[in-house]
């Protein structure tokens, strides 16, 4: 039973990484930019909902809708105001590292904003599926955990199907592969970039609301949690949403098993050492054998 419960715990914490990994991979596929701020959207979702419900006494449903829409609008404005200038302006910025810094700055900005708005304590959005944890044999499932897992699986499958079975999904891939090549067949690469950015921002917010009852969020949780998603996405070469989900879940499971059987003190150290070794041994298998220019 220990193994079973460790696996469940791993699956659920892995789902957290997985959702962020999907968001990062999808947007990288269309824009070739790594989004470090995706975890901060989750934090905004969780703390925003909590603030509306707990402090301003809104009912839960309108609060959630308002917060998700607000995240979408924020993402839209950021694209219109900053990304357009940085990527489509006269001084175009290219290269993974420099564009990464824009989302890095966005992450700082959102965290700073959240600190002003919500303070520094840890809060969580209201639990959506209330009740005791479900038991089956000796296995225990927390209800929020199941929601989280479902969210990860659904978003992974949905994005994979989108890319594989729709023309607009293929247009997303084309946008990331070649700007000129996509433009000449009528693909509006900027619109795709914006839409996916908004979509992943909103998905992260939804996810933050679902997941926050498990761990709680503070203004600066987003960066750390998004960072692990960022690492998980690396194992999908920042390209494939389906593989990003698998990688995220696998990392969660390994982490949980290491904690249960090897060492609770050094489990993270060992986990990251394994992950680093994987990248160093088989970089081409992960699609990471490209130069980092700019």
């Amino acid at each position: 039973m220990k193994l079973g419960n460790l696996l469940i715990a791993g699956l659920i914490s892995g789902s957290i990484y997985a959702v962020f990994a999907v968001c990062i991979a999808m947007w990288f596929r269309v824009s070739n930019i790594l989004n470090l701020a995706v975890g901060d959207f989750a934090m905004l979702g969780a703390l925003g909902t909590d603030h509306l419900v707990r402090v301003l006494h809104w009912p839960t449903a309108p609060a959630i809708v308002t917060v998700i829409v607000a995240c979408g609008v924020g993402a839209y404005l950021y694209d219109k105001a900053i990304l357009r200038l940085a990527l489509d302006g006269r001084r175009r910025q290219e290269g993974i590292v420099i564009t990464f810094f824009f989302t890095f700055a966005l992450s700082f900005f959102i965290e700073g904003l959240a600190e002003v708005l919500f303070g520094t304590n840890i809060y969580a959005a209201p639990t959506l599926w209330q009740g005791n944890s479900l038991s089956w044999g000796g296995l225990h499932f927390e209800r929020a955990g199941l929601l989280v897992l479902a969210c990860a699986v659904v978003s992974g499958i949905a994005f994979t199907a989108y890319i594989r079975y729709t023309l607009s999904g293929k247009a997303v891939e084309a946008s990331g592969e070649s700007y000129v090549g996509a433009s000449i067949v009528g693909i509006d690469t900027r619109r795709y970039r914006r839409n996916i950015f908004i979509m992943t921002g909103m998905l992260a917010a939804v996810f933050g609301i679902l997941q926050s009852p498990l761990t709680g969020y503070a203004f600066n949780s987003g960066g750390t949690i998004g960072f692990t998603g960022f690492i998980a996405a690396a194992y999908a070469g920042y390209q494939k949403p389906g593989r990003a989900v698998l990688a995220g879940v696998a990392i969660g499971v390994v982490e949980s098993l290491l904690g249960g059987y090897v060492s609770t003190q050094y489990n993270d150290t060992i986990l990251y050492a394994i992950l680093a070794a994987l990248v160093l041994i088989r970089p081409s298998a992960m699609g990471l054998d490209v130069a980092v220019g700019g």
Partner: peptide
């Protein structure tokens, strides 16, 4: 210099040409 989508298959490259007149795969 062609500007294909190098990581996509030949079929996907060609079908994306249709994007200029449809969104339906």
């Amino acid at each position: 210099r062609r500007h294909l989508y190098p990581a996509l298959t030949v079929l996907d490259n060609v079908v994306l040409g249709c994007y200029s007149w449809t969104r339906n795969l």
